[in-house]
Design a protein around this nucleic acid. Structure first.
Lengths: 297, 297
DNA sequence: CCGGCATGGATATCCGGCAGTTACAGTACC
DNA sequence: GGTACTGTAACTGCCGGATATCCATGCCGG
């Protein structure tokens, strides 16, 4: 069995196409096909459901796939470790982050990239559950996700911020004259909100529910862009996280904190536990620890 | 980079000899030497300190070695998983166990082997610390060790027995007429004990200390064999774990429990946490769970 | 102090196998 | 029938391994 074969397998899983997978692996399609069939022979299993085109993996294929990812993760870790030993950090750091978390990781990535010229990023916008699952299955190296002590057994966590809600509104249409609002204030306002199923919507629902406020949205959209534009136009207000910088998109926008709104689990930088530890993830975590102290993220 | 190269590296670490390592890998010594040098070139590092003979690994070599073990562990896991998919369990289960734990894992291994003809065992007698470290570094798959909630974050634990101490003595020389003894009873008796540094000695010391009993050993030996023979001859008594079957070695031997002696951490079956989970270790753990209920191990 | 021998690893050369390529065939779907 | 996608076939070049040899050190007796 060979590392290459496992790479082929994973590539096929991700692209679901023999030719494309072969491309990504920089080989021709017959080579990939043959090597995969060879792998199946060696293992004595059928991994791929074959039709006139790629159909999917068998049950066994999926299980082998999980191990293949584990092997490749360790393989990548070895190379990253070697890079560190050579005094350089290279490789691709796969970062997952929850959108609208009231915490902007991009500057962190920028600063990290500035110190380590050869590091590349693969940034994915995911829900907390997807991030933690991605860490499990070796699809991510680090993630910014909502997590708490419950998860500490499986993941290394470092709290980077508490999410505090605020109200985003058009300063020309509304004026409150107070530094902070109350959930009750929202009841009389036309609210815009993200569609059900989006992660931040769940956060807002949760916050509203614990505050005992009923929701009567005027606008419901699956696009943050549309929502901000609606607020900007003065059509409605919207609950948004503080610290997201949304209010700077338009001079008409203002973002006031809402009292008692940090009822969510804190936002944490999560990494896999395990020995040995990924050098890249380790370095990034260390970097974040030095840069971020909780409560000021 | 190739799996084989990593196998060579690990073999060299374990045997500390190029020729021997090559033997274990079923290749000739030049092949191993060249492939290792090639690996060093690829990584751009010096892994092995070379002299006229094998000296040791460099600092970087040690770190790479840890990753190599991780890769190989995942690699083995993949093959084990494949075996399971084929409906058979094959491979080598590396088991660590603390000696004199008052729990006999051998029958378990026998029963497991009876159900899975193609499973081999690699059994090592180690201290609890060594076992947990061995799980970390992929040198062991499962282990019977003293552990408690403190370790639950890193290891999957299943309590198989509480270690209860007993007094092993010659029934012809001593007679107590009670079903259980007290720590105080030991103060007037000539005691035999294992040398300092052996794991069970620490357990005994710990138990005696918490019972407030001072220790005046008559016999001190680093051999369990000698100790049992001393007791058998009537020279001394010895604190031993219940359930070890020691009393059956000689009809003159008797083993009486000591009240309040289960002050140790419980003996647990420990396995690595991680995704994916080793099929062999998983099956064994499941097997043990079905066979063993705590308090009757 | 020195020559011979054993040990252990590096080097040189040859060879066979296999991964990958190119070209082509088969098959479902439009 | 054309297109898109995968499997098959023959060829080729690379590379990993074996065998033979060399080199350095350490140990020994004389």
């Amino acid at each position: 069995m060979d590392i290459r074969q496992l790479q082929y397998l994973v590539a096929l899983d991700e692209l679901r196409h023999f030719g494309e997978a072969a491309n990504r692996c920089h080989v021709t399609q017959p080579a990939l096909s043959m090597r995969l069939r060879q792998l199946e022979d060696e293992l004595g299993l059928t991994l791929v459901r074959r039709g006139h085109r790629f159909v999917g993996f068998t049950e066994e294929g999926e299980r082998i796939l999980a191990w293949a990812r584990a092997v490749l993760a360790a393989h990548d870790g070895l190379h990253a470790e070697a890079s560190v030993c050579r005094g350089q950090l290279v490789g691709t750091l796969r970062v997952g982050m929850v959108p609208l978390a009231g915490f902007e990781p991009i500057p962190l990535l920028q600063a990290f990239a500035a110190e380590h010229a050869d590091v590349r990023f693969e940034l994915k916008s995911l829900s907390s559950e997807q991030i933690l699952a991605g860490l499990d299955t070796n699809r991510l190296d680090v993630g910014f996700a909502y997590a708490d002590g419950r998860h500490e057994r499986k993941y290394q966590l470092f709290e980077v911020a508490e999410t505090t809600m605020g109200l985003l509104f058009n300063r020309h249409r509304w004026r409150f004259g107070r530094p902070a609002l109350d959930w009750m204030d929202l009841e009389s306002l036309p609210l815009g909100i993200l569609s059900k199923g989006m992660h931040f919507r769940q956060s807002v629902d949760h916050a509203l529910q614990s505050a005992g406020v009923a929701l009567k949205p005027l606008v419901e959209t699956d696009s943050v862009e549309f929502l901000v534009q609606s607020v900007s136009a003065g059509l409605c207000c919207a609950v948004m996280p503080l610290g997201s910088g949304l209010e700077q998109r338009d001079e008409a926008l203002e973002l006031l904190p809402i009292a008692d709104s940090h009822t969510l689990a804190p936002l944490c930088l999560a990494t896999r536990r395990g020995d040995p530890v990924s050098a890249l993830a380790e370095a990034f975590q260390q970097f974040v620890r030095e840069r971020v102290s909780p409560d000021q993220g």
